[in-house]
């Protein structure tokens, strides 16, 4: 049986930042997140303890009855990586729009100019997209793009290869060519906490091979990238992510987005989505 919206796992805080009890929202309902003598906790408005998982530097919870464990990222466990708590940024947009934007490559030269992309290198070459039934995830592979400065540790422009993975409706994982270690993938994630259908708290997290940058530099790089997206996310219309084809005309470069929307519809994940054609 498919999980209901409530039965998924959601990020609600950084494990390293849980000193005081924090009141926040999850799916429109108030929760309290914190740490006490007994460990970390999440409680709903009625004081009921919600299930928790500590993984990827974050605390995760579910207001429903999760039938599956939270996904794993085996690549992030390989030794020698810097695990980067990027912190959170709040955005007035649908949680699904935040994920969709993360999956898009075509905007790099225009929004992340001279960092993740640059004119005239704007072409997105053909890549592979699958909805992997056996794991119930969306994957895009063989994605290649020219980047002037792909990471803090990158000097000069390189053709970067990526894989994108959507392991849960409000989470996305990006695997990216690792400049100092060819053959390994850097792992960059976007974990989204849906505050409401049109407001979210975004928790990026990274597991990188980088011996040169300080932690503050890696955090700063990723916050810069995400904040370049924020104003665009807040101005997207319609506010909710349309799952049915309507006025928007997707192009070849939007294949991942098309698969993501199709998958959301298939699994019945409609929180932050719009079902009537725009």
């Amino acid at each position: 049986m498919r999980e209901a919206v409530d039965d998924h796992w959601y990020p609600v805080g950084l494990l390293s930042g849980l000193e005081d009890t924090r009141k926040t929202l999850l799916l429109g309902r108030e929760i309290a997140v914190g740490r006490n003598g007994a460990g970390v906790f999440v409680r709903d408005a009625a004081g009921r303890a919600l299930p928790t998982v500590a993984r990827f530097g974050h605390l995760w919870t579910s207001p429903g009855q999760p039938t599956r464990d939270l996904f794993t990222i085996p690549e992030a466990d390989t030794p020698g990586r810097q695990l980067v708590d990027v912190g959170s940024v709040r955005v007035k947009c649908s949680p699904l729009r935040a994920v969709e934007n993360f999956l898009d490559i075509a905007h790099f030269p225009f929004v992340h100019t001279d960092i993740l992309g640059a004119e005239p290198h704007t072409e997105v070459e053909r890549y592979q997209v699958d909805i992997r039934e056996e794991v119930d995830e969306v994957w895009a592979t063989e994605v290649k793009f020219f980047q002037p400065q792909a990471a803090r540790s990158a000097e000069g422009g390189i053709k970067t290869e990526y894989m994108y993975r959507v392991p849960a409706p409000t989470c996305a994982v990006l695997y990216k060519t690792c400049p100092p270690r060819p053959g390994e993938w850097d792992v960059i994630t976007l974990f989204v906490q849906p505050l409401t259908e049109e407001w979210c708290e975004v928790w990026p997290w990274m597991a990188l091979y980088d011996d040169q940058s300080t932690m503050a530099e890696m955090v700063s790089f990723q916050q810069m990238i995400f904040m370049q997206d924020r104003s665009i996310l807040e101005n997207q219309i319609p506010r909710k992510l349309p799952l049915d084809p309507g006025m928007e005309v997707p192009t070849q470069a939007d294949m991942t987005s098309v698969a993501y929307r199709r998958w959301l519809k298939r699994i019945g994940y409609t929180y932050g989505a719009q079902l009537v054609a725009a």
Binding site: T214, M215, A216, V219
Partner: peptide, 11 residues
Amino acid sequence: TRAVNFHPAKE
């Protein structure tokens, strides 16, 4: 410039 981890680490 020296990056300071203002958020989230309050450096």
